[in-house]
Computed example of a mutant assay.
Amino acid sequence: MSDADDEPPLLDDHRTWRRIVKQGQLTRLPEGVIVGAIRANYRCEGVDQDFVREMIVFISDRMLSILRSEISTKTFPDGGNDIVEAVHDAMLKALLSPTAADGEGLRKWFKPTLRNRAIDHVRRARAKMKLMPDMVDDPGGMVDPRTENFSEAEQEADVQRILNCLRGKGVRDVFELHMQGYRCSSIKGESISSILEIDPDTASKRLASAKQQLEKLIGRW
Rank of each mutant, 00 (worst) to 15 (best):
R146M: 12
A86T: 13
E152N: 07
L163P: 10
L64N: 15
R68M: 09
T147V: 11
M55Y: 07
D138C: 00
F58H: 13
S72E: 05
L131H: 12
V143L: 11
L95D: 02
S72K: 03
S69M: 11
R43G: 00
T73V: 11
G141P: 07
S65F: 13
K22A: 13
A127H: 08
P139D: 02
K93F: 11
R39I: 01
R115K: 08
Q49Y: 02
L67R: 06
V33L: 12
L114M: 09
E104Q: 09
V57F: 06
V33E: 12
C165N: 14
N149W: 12
L96E: 00
D50T: 10
R117W: 08
R107N: 05
M135V: 09
G141E: 00
D138W: 00
I66D: 09
G24N: 10
N41M: 09
C165H: 15
D89R: 09
A37E: 02
A40P: 01
F58A: 06
F150T: 09
F76R: 09
G24F: 10
E154C: 03
S97K: 02
L131E: 15
I38V: 15
I66R: 14
Q49T: 02
L96W: 00
C44F: 01
Q25E: 14
V143Q: 08
L92V: 06
A118T: 10
Q23G: 10
P77K: 13
G170N: 12
A37K: 04
Q49L: 04
S151R: 11
T99N: 04
V136F: 03
S97G: 06
P30S: 05
A125F: 11
L163M: 14
V136R: 02
G32S: 03
I38E: 02
L29K: 04
A86W: 04
F76E: 07
C44R: 11
M129W: 14
L106G: 01
E31I: 00
D89N: 10
A153N: 08
D48S: 07
W109R: 11
L166W: 13
P77I: 11
K169H: 15
L114D: 01
C165E: 15
G24Y: 09
V35I: 07
